[in-house]
Computed example of a mutant assay.
Amino acid sequence: MITIRDEIAADIPAREALLDRCLGERRTAKSSERLREGRLPAEGLSLAATHDGALLATVRLWHVEAGGVPALLLGPLAVAPASQGEGLGQAMMREALRRAACLGHGAVILVGDAPYYARFGFDAALTQSLAMPGPVERERFLAIELREGALSGARGILTATGATAPTVEAAARAA
């Protein structure tokens, strides 16, 4: 049985290996990564799908804003190649969006395959007044409002607003 649960620290090496396998080594060069660098994901919105202790899928959401309007940035979403086509990515998306809505978040933004994400309600029209902090294909820059009008007034370049990740030096001092 596959379980979708909160990500735990022990998942990190397997998550990074899965992301490299699914998205390639250039994944860290993407514009979305600029918004994740040095940040922690939104609390309660880092998910892992496992089966018999093996990580099969991952998705995380991050705090961002544009023009003072808060939102979440989704990504990356990855499913182990052997588990693709079985609906696990869809289950991860639905759970991530459900949890984001339950936690009171108003909107989710992502860069991804428009036909795939349209099934969840994502639309490029909602990002017309927004920009990434780097190059992005406009047709892949998508959003969904979890609360009607949540992106009203959002304008300009997305900026990261989430908690900063502890530095190596800070972690060493705390130990």
Rank of each mutant, 00 (worst) to 15 (best):
G112K: 02
G112N: 06
I109T: 08
A131F: 00
R138H: 08
A107R: 07
F141N: 02
P115C: 13
L130S: 02
P135M: 14
I109S: 01
R140V: 01
F120H: 14
D123W: 01
Q128R: 15
Y116N: 06
Q128F: 00
E137Q: 14
R140W: 09
A107I: 13
D123G: 04
V111M: 14
P115N: 08
L110K: 06
F120K: 09
I144A: 12
A143I: 04
P135D: 15
V111H: 01
R138G: 01
E145H: 02
L130R: 06
A107N: 11
A107Y: 11
V111D: 01
A124R: 00
V108E: 00
V136M: 08
R119G: 15
E145K: 06
P115K: 10
L142A: 05
T127G: 00
A118S: 15
A143V: 12
H105W: 15
E137S: 08
E137K: 11
Y117N: 07
G134K: 14
T127A: 04
G112Q: 06
P133R: 10
Y116W: 11
Q128H: 15
G134W: 14
R138F: 00
L146C: 10
D113S: 09
A143K: 05
G134L: 14
M132K: 07
A131N: 01
E139C: 09
L142C: 08
V111S: 06
A114D: 04
P115E: 08
T127E: 00
E137G: 03
T127L: 03
E139S: 15
E139K: 13
L146V: 09
R138A: 13
D123E: 11
A124D: 04
M132G: 07
A143C: 10
A107T: 11
A143G: 07
R119H: 13
F120S: 06
P135W: 15
G112H: 04
R119M: 11
Y116C: 08
D113T: 06
I109F: 03
L110A: 01
L110H: 05
Y117D: 07
G112Y: 07
F141P: 05
R138N: 05
L142P: 01
V136D: 10
R119Y: 06
V108R: 02
S129L: 12
L130I: 12
G106E: 11
G121A: 10
E145Q: 14
A118M: 05
Y116T: 13
F122Y: 10
P115S: 14
L126P: 02
A118P: 03
R140C: 12
L130W: 09
V136P: 09
A118N: 05
